[in-house]
Simulated assay, not measured.
Amino acid sequence: MTRVSIFSSPLLLGFDHVERMIERATKAGSEGYPPYNIEQTGENDLRITLALAGFSATDLGITVEDNQLVIRGKQSDDKERIYLHRGIAARQFQRSFVLADGIEVVRAELRNGLLHIDLHRPRPESQIRNIAINTTDGGRSDTLGVTGKTGGSR
């Protein structure tokens, strides 16, 4: 069976990367560990908080790969301990969040078993660009006016 995408319309040119981002977000949303919160901390600021009891900063890695924030954790198992009961699992995890274009990771802080990752979304600049129209009229070629972004010409 062939899958039909909502982005297959001929009027939506160049949106295949959006479709891939939606697929990645769907896959990432099915993970259950570790639990997390996402909160808005300012008009253009977000914070992701992950509950990571038992993890130290050296057990964690944070990367941004192709607009995807990836947090990985792996606890080292203490071989010298003898457990009579082990109810707290030392397990590894990978949690991913798809980021919109332009979102920047500002900082990450591990405090009291919570990993806080602060994100900032800069305001997009409005751009207006006129495109040159080339004409060929009886062997003569003219280029009609070209202007660039707001505030200048190109």
Score class of each variant (00 low, 15 high):
107 R>S: 11
63 T>L: 05
69 L>V: 01
32 G>L: 07
22 I>A: 01
16 D>M: 02
88 I>D: 13
30 S>G: 11
52 L>M: 06
38 I>P: 02
48 I>R: 11
89 A>E: 15
112 N>A: 11
144 L>H: 13
76 S>P: 00
129 R>K: 06
129 R>E: 08
126 S>Q: 11
12 L>R: 13
55 F>G: 01
137 D>K: 04
22 I>Y: 04
91 R>I: 12
35 P>Y: 11
33 Y>M: 04
9 S>R: 13
127 Q>N: 14
120 H>Y: 15
11 L>Q: 10
56 S>P: 05
150 T>K: 15
70 V>F: 00
59 D>Y: 13
146 V>W: 06
65 E>S: 02
95 R>L: 02
68 Q>F: 00
137 D>Q: 08
1 M>R: 06
80 E>Q: 11
18 V>R: 01
149 K>T: 09
50 L>G: 03
48 I>D: 05
58 T>V: 09
101 D>G: 02
75 Q>C: 07
31 E>V: 05
102 G>K: 15
113 G>P: 10
27 K>D: 15
2 T>N: 08
115 L>G: 07
78 D>I: 09
146 V>E: 12
149 K>N: 10
147 T>E: 10
98 V>H: 03
48 I>P: 02
142 D>V: 03
107 R>Q: 09
10 P>R: 11
28 A>T: 04
10 P>M: 11
60 L>A: 03
148 G>T: 09
65 E>M: 01
69 L>E: 13
114 L>I: 02
16 D>N: 09
150 T>C: 06
122 P>V: 03
50 L>K: 05
23 E>Q: 10
129 R>G: 01
146 V>Y: 10
104 E>A: 04
86 R>L: 08
53 A>I: 05
66 D>E: 13
14 G>E: 15
80 E>P: 00
64 V>K: 02
77 D>K: 14
148 G>M: 08
16 D>T: 07
56 S>F: 13
138 G>P: 00
19 E>Y: 06
47 R>C: 07
125 E>Q: 06
15 F>A: 00
123 R>S: 12
149 K>A: 06
121 R>N: 09
110 L>T: 07
13 L>F: 01
31 E>W: 09
65 E>R: 04
16 D>E: 14
136 T>I: 05
145 G>Y: 14
75 Q>H: 11
52 L>T: 04
43 E>F: 09
138 G>Y: 12
45 D>P: 00
70 V>I: 07
69 L>S: 10
111 R>K: 10
100 A>R: 14
144 L>E: 15
37 N>D: 14
52 L>K: 11
60 L>T: 08
87 G>H: 08
49 T>W: 07
19 E>A: 03
148 G>N: 12
65 E>F: 06
58 T>W: 07
85 H>A: 01
5 S>W: 13
119 L>H: 12
89 A>I: 14
20 R>K: 06
47 R>W: 00
99 L>P: 05
145 G>D: 13
34 P>V: 02
19 E>G: 01
49 T>N: 12
8 S>F: 08
90 A>E: 15
11 L>I: 01
38 I>W: 10
15 F>H: 05
13 L>A: 12
46 L>S: 08
48 I>V: 07
76 S>H: 15
90 A>T: 10
116 H>L: 05
102 G>N: 15
120 H>P: 02
